[in-house]
Simulated assay, not measured.
Amino acid sequence: MGRYATIAGTGRYVPERVLTNADLDEMLGEPVGEWLVENVGIEERHVMADTETTSDMAVVASRQALARAGISAAELDLIIVATDTPDYISPATASVVQAKLGARDAGTYDINCACAAWVTGLDAAGKYIATDSDYDHILLVGAYGMTRFVDWTDKYTCTLFADGAGAVVLKAGDEPGVLAGGLLASGEYHNALGIYTGGTSLPATLEVIRAQGKPRVQFVRKFPATFNTEHWPPLVRKVLAKAGLGLDDVALFLFTQLNLRTIEATMATLDQPMSKTHWIMDKWGYTGSACIPMALDDALEQRTLQRGDYVVFCASGGGLAMAAAVARWTLG
């Protein structure tokens, strides 16, 4: 009998504060809202409170996922936090989440490959459970507090980024769940989009802060506008082939939630209807490493996944890092 990782529960956290496109029009002193809706699909975004941290958001989403999975924090064997906006440079935010949940027996680590981190973690967690009997329950949470690093005068970033968290609990089972995954990267674009101060390359010294301001997310140089639409389809096809599946076998495709037009173009390239995907950037903005588990949780409230349905997850982020995975739905 085989051993597989299955998704046992999902959860999310959306901060209370809402920032609409009209709010940004006023803040920036120029109209950006109409362009955002037409070209990106974002109408509003949610922003974490001044008193909230990345780990706080992760914990709320995690508790919901644990409750739905019927698993206590004490039963967790591993906590993986996917984030590039950690509570601290060191130690890992996953350790903070472990302490706040009271998951004393769980190992911890963070994954930072920007917005591809959660899908990367899904691939890793699936392999842990499938190959090592020490891992029966894994909490995988994407948490994103990028508005802490936004320059609110920069219309190229403050219009996109938002905050939130999404989580899944994976458990060991004897029927197929997480089936296959794949990773790619185009490291030549590592200096195109990111937060470039605060690390060893450019420490946040007084001199650096005086010259460049506090650490902030920046588009430093351009990368191809068609990057995702060129790279997502072959990556999706590759992981489906590894699982012995075709495109028409998939019930739900979930992509990085940065741009609805990119998702539309990708689904057209794959010759799949938009009814087989789901998006959340219109109401929650771009939530980076949290966006795909948040989209999954939201999709489950609006549609029914049947036991045996296949779900594809495909993400990309700064670096440029990419990840895809396919899972068989075992709930319901």
Rank of each mutant, 00 (worst) to 15 (best):
G102K: 07
I71L: 10
L184M: 10
R210S: 09
A130H: 08
L28M: 01
S186E: 13
Q218K: 09
D132W: 08
T93G: 12
L254D: 10
M48P: 08
G164N: 07
G318A: 15
A61I: 07
N228A: 15
P203L: 05
F253D: 05
E264G: 10
S95T: 12
K242N: 13
A143H: 01
L193H: 07
G182F: 06
Y310E: 09
Y156W: 01
F219M: 11
G187I: 07
E52D: 09
P224K: 06
A180M: 02
G332P: 06
G2T: 15
I263C: 02
G107L: 13
C291H: 01
A65C: 08
T93W: 04
A265S: 06
R63F: 01
V250N: 02
L206N: 05
E34V: 15
L193S: 14
I111E: 08
P234T: 10
F227T: 05
T20E: 09
T266K: 01
T120H: 03
I80A: 12
T6Q: 15
Y13E: 14
D136L: 14
G9H: 04
D105G: 15
A73K: 10
I280V: 14
A290P: 02
S201W: 11
T131M: 12
K127R: 14
T197F: 03
F161S: 06
L305K: 07
W279C: 09
